[in-house]
Design a protein around this nucleic acid. Structure first.
Length: 542
RNA sequence: GGCCAAUUGGUGAAACGGUUAACACAUUGCCCUCUCAAGGCAACAUUCACGGGUUCGAAUCCCGUAUUGGUCACCA
């Protein structure tokens, strides 16, 4: 069979040959040991936690080795394309401060583009043509029905389904037959003529998983689809070669198609990059079973979920780092003031099995991170959030910054030796400071109405805005005594029967009256912030 | 179903033939305290999915079983 002739028949007018592209995209000029990694999302418009998880690993490995991290858009599937998805991806990574050195819209000036696979169609076709001319690939005219029929037959005979061995009927097409199909304008795909045997096994070293055994590929997989656009497998081999990726980092769902990729690199004569397959993120179901996070059921999977709640991007990254490398957390404990980029990230410290996503832990990390913020940092964090999600409240908060400063300092415990850790994410912070702006009685009094009334009346009568915290509290004790409550907790504990309640109950009544809540930071301080008139007004509204 | 991988407490996990099985989150108790938060001090796996084996010695090595996950497209 004259393969050269076949190749020319199929692709008569490609402008270049493979050498042209090899020369166009020469070896990158980088320091020894520099790693080149890529983030290669398909533009479905949905960015999830797993994407960030991988991107963070990509970014760290690339940048800590003084290498390159680029963005490539895998838009080979027309059906899954969503308008504006690429912008959404970039916006999302921007929010989490993951920056690309080159690729797609972000920095189209890179020298290895285009970074959209659809725009690279001719490149793939050129390499496919070369394979055809070497007899390593061939056109296949089988229709969907043909393939389904084969599959049925295979399952009934209990053999591995797919296009392989004797089932690969188009392998043996003669030039004349191909010409006839072409003249007929029949659609065709290009398939790999696989040389492998699935009985042959070998061990392969994965940067994360370690040594794994892989079988040889024996499937004549599709390289180019009927529309001339490559499948993932082919595009991956060509792009990662031409863009000089040194480490392919991707989810472990790709592990099972690794044999295909190994054969492709071999057949194309490409140097094999390193591979690193990350584990999937899991969660515990209501039913108690561990399962993969799913797009439909788990809103917390979408990165936008965290942006909308106003989680600090850095805190989310810190959390992801603890999942990514087990020793990160301990390192961070020892270097609380260092940036996470100073940590040495290593594949060997990544987990082997699927990590459970733990919201509690995220919250904890977020709290301790925010508890180190200065007042300025806190305001700078809240500002853009309020602007985007509560624009109507912007003036309320930032119109009187002096007031906001007082509110936030108290909430953050700026005056304490150990700061408070109440604040987790922006939305929750706004909710917790709402009591200064809107009065709403949420909790109920636990004592009867007449007791409440008499305590509140006496409190209003004796309240002096200029009292310091101690004086204020001494007055509270007097009120307690007058109403049959124990002024000292120790007295109450010694003889709970002898009192209506303790000083804490008196404070609670006033707290509910003033803040609407049973729990709050220091009551005296809150009243200082609210001012005399507002405090009294709230109490008298009861 | 075939193939590949994983399995240590409620969770993330360390350990690479010999330790009281780290550490962190969560939980519980006590202390501090006008509430909450924070903080302090404790407690929390006689046991590493199960069953065999190798060994003076196994969470660690070997063999089975079970369970979980991934994958078997002209989707990525």
């Amino acid at each position: 069979m004259d393969y050269k002739k076949l190749a020319d028949l199929l692709y008569p007018d490609l402008k270049h040959d493979t050498d042209y592209y090899e020369n166009l995209f020469p070896e990158r000029n980088l320091e020894k040991g520099a790693e080149v990694l890529r983030m290669a999302p398909s533009p479905t418009g949905f960015v999830h936690l797993g994407n960030l998880y991988g991107a963070l690993a990509d970014e760290r490995i690339a940048h800590q080795s003084k290498g390159v991290f680029y963005l490539r858009i895998e838009d080979t599937d027309e059906k899954r394309k969503v308008e504006g998805a690429v912008e959404a991806v970039i916006k999302c990574f921007d929010y989490f401060q993951i920056y690309f050195d080159e690729g797609a819209e972000h920095n189209p000036e890179g020298n290895y583009g285009p970074y959209y696979q659809r725009q690279r169609a001719e490149i793939y076709q050129t390499f496919a043509k070369k394979l055809i001319s070497e007899g390593k690939a061939y056109p296949c005219f089988c229709s969907e029905e043909d393939l389904n029929k084969k599959r049925e037959e295979q399952t009934s005979q209990n053999v591995t389904p797919g296009y392989w061995g004797k089932w690969a009927t188009c392998r043996n097409l003669t030039i004349e037959e191909v010409e006839k199909h072409l003249a007929n304008k029949d659609e065709f795909v290009i398939r790999l003529r696989s040389q492998g045997n699935s009985e042959n096994k070998s061990t392969f070293h994965d940067e994360i998983k370690g040594d794994i055994t892989v079988c040889e590929n024996d499937q004549d997989v599709v390289l180019l689809k009927a529309d001339g656009i490559p499948t993932y497998h082919f595009a991956h081999a060509i792009d990662d070669h031409l863009m000089h990726t040194t480490t392919v980092l991707r989810g472990e769902e790709w592990l099972s198609s690794l044999p295909i990729h190994l054969e492709l690199f071999k057949v194309l004569g490409f140097k094999l990059p390193k591979f690193a397959h990350t584990t999937v993120l899991m969660k515990i179901d209501e039913t108690g079973t561990k399962r993969k996070l799913s797009k439909r059921k788990d809103p917390e999977l979408a990165l936008d979920y965290y942006r909308q709640l106003g989680y600090h991007p850095y805190a989310v990254k810190l959390y992801l780092m603890t999942l990514l490398n087990w020793n990160f957390e301990q390192w961070f404990l020892g270097h609380p003031d260092s940036d996470l980029s100073e940590f040495k990230f290593e594949f060997k410290n990544m987990g082997q099995s699927g990590a459970l996503f733990d919201l509690e832990k995220l919250n904890n990390i977020s709290k301790t991170y925010l508890s180190k913020f200065s007042l300025e940092e806190m305001k700078n964090f809240l500002k853009p959030y309020v602007k985007e999600f509560y624009p109507e409240r912007y003036d309320m908060y930032f119109g009187d910054e002096e007031f906001l400063d007082k509110v936030l300092s108290l909430g953050m415990g700026m005056n304490l030796k150990k700061r408070r850790k109440d604040y987790i994410f922006a939305k929750q912070i706004l909710e917790s400071i709402d009591l200064y702006y809107n009065y709403e009685k949420v909790d109920e009094f636990t004592h009867d109405e007449s007791t409440v009334k008499s305590i509140l009346e006496e409190f209003v009568k004796t309240y002096d805005y200029n009292d310091d915290n101690n004086t204020w509290f001494e007055k509270l004790k007097v009120i307690a005594n007058n109403n049959g409550f124990a002024a000292e907790m120790s007295d109450y504990k010694a003889n709970p029967e002898g009192y209506k309640g303790a000083i804490s109950d008196v404070a609670e009544i006033i707290r509910i009256a003033v803040t609407g809540h049973k729990n709050s930071p220091d009551l005296w301080a809150i009243m200082q912030i609210l001012g005399k008139d507002e405090s009294i007004r709230r109490i008298q509204s009861i």
